[in-house]
Amino acid sequence: MLVMKRIWSFCLLFFFLSCGGEAIAGELSQRLANFPQWEKLTSVQPASGDLVYPKWMAGTWKVTSTLVDLAAPLAPIVTPGFEGNRRQLNQPVSFLVRFVKEQPSIAGLKVFPQRDYKSPILVADRAFNSLNLARAYLGDEAVLLVKVDPDSPNRQITFLRSSRQLVSIVTARATETTLDSKFVTTEVFQQLFKGGSRPYLNSVESTTAYHKLSTSNPAIEADQVTAVYLSPQDPDYFKAGSRPVALYRYRLEFFPQELLTTPKE
């Protein structure tokens, strides 16, 4: 049970490092400001291609993630491990991530035909980032491998000990750039945990506002809210409707790393 709760906690952060359609101006930022008053986002578009980040996020970073608040708007309807996650409040967790340049995909061309695709785009190194994140939360021995679908950056599998797997699929996303130069993203994804007594499926939305700072320690900060929705298989699904049953707010700090470090295989 303890292992399952730790896996659940890791799942909450899984896609903050994973562009799509533009959101209505200011809508994503307003959602963050409205925490914990949250409704399911309606302006996202189907995910196609990869999530494109601004140039100032290029490179390798040490990220410190801290859970600063959590809420259960529909209590006593909650997610597994919600109460246990209170122990993680104000407990920082650190891991390495990197953002790399690559040529845009054909799918990306369809989504953004107005862009100049002679230049490479900046994307997350998903396998590297997800493996480091998973091992930071679960331990080096608990996580075997992370594989990204070669045909779609929006689908990946985390292989865990005891033949357990976490399958994560980004289904929709939106982005916006605010007047104060914050880069805000929302991704909606389905996650399926396999290997327990029965598969567990749910829907998660992660909204993050990245802000470049004038300092180097940290150089970037981010405000993130992860909202968890029940799957149609859950007996409380119709009670919850379009509202999340758990909300988690994180503070992310990015510290630049000069040396490129490869995770242990």
Rank of each mutant, 00 (worst) to 15 (best):
N85A: 07
K55V: 12
S18Q: 07
T64D: 13
E27G: 02
G20Y: 02
N85P: 00
M57N: 04
Q257S: 08
A124V: 03
Q30W: 04
S231D: 14
I220K: 01
C11V: 01
F10K: 07
V146Y: 10
E187S: 05
A246T: 02
T171F: 02
F112S: 08
S206K: 12
I106R: 06
S163V: 10
Q30E: 09
P46Q: 10
A25P: 15
L2G: 11
R155G: 00
L260Q: 13
S181N: 15
P232D: 06
N132G: 12
A75T: 00
L74D: 01
L252C: 04
L160I: 06
P218W: 15
G84E: 15
K182Y: 03
Q37C: 08
A246W: 03
A124L: 10
L51A: 01
G195P: 05
S18I: 04
I7P: 01
Y237C: 13
F193D: 14
E187Q: 10
V204S: 11
S152T: 15
V93H: 11
F128D: 05
Q114I: 09
I220S: 01
N217C: 08
P256W: 09
G196W: 15
K5V: 09
A124M: 10
Q30N: 10
T177I: 13
A47G: 07
V63R: 06
S119N: 13
S216C: 13
R31I: 05
S94L: 15
A71C: 15
A75R: 06
A107F: 09
A209Y: 03
V170C: 11
L179N: 08
W61K: 03
V123Q: 10
E39D: 14
I220G: 01
Q191S: 12
P104Q: 05
V146S: 11
F35G: 02
N90Y: 02
L122M: 09
E205N: 07
P244A: 06
L252A: 03
G49D: 08
K40E: 11
S105P: 04
P153R: 01
F254W: 12
D149P: 03
N85I: 04
F14K: 12
P46G: 02
E253L: 08
S94P: 05
W61E: 02
V148F: 00
P120L: 06
L32F: 01
A174M: 07
A246S: 14
R98Q: 13
V100W: 00
S231L: 03
D125H: 08
A227V: 12
A47C: 09
T186S: 07
V52I: 14
Y248E: 06
Q156N: 05
L252M: 11
E265P: 07
P150H: 03
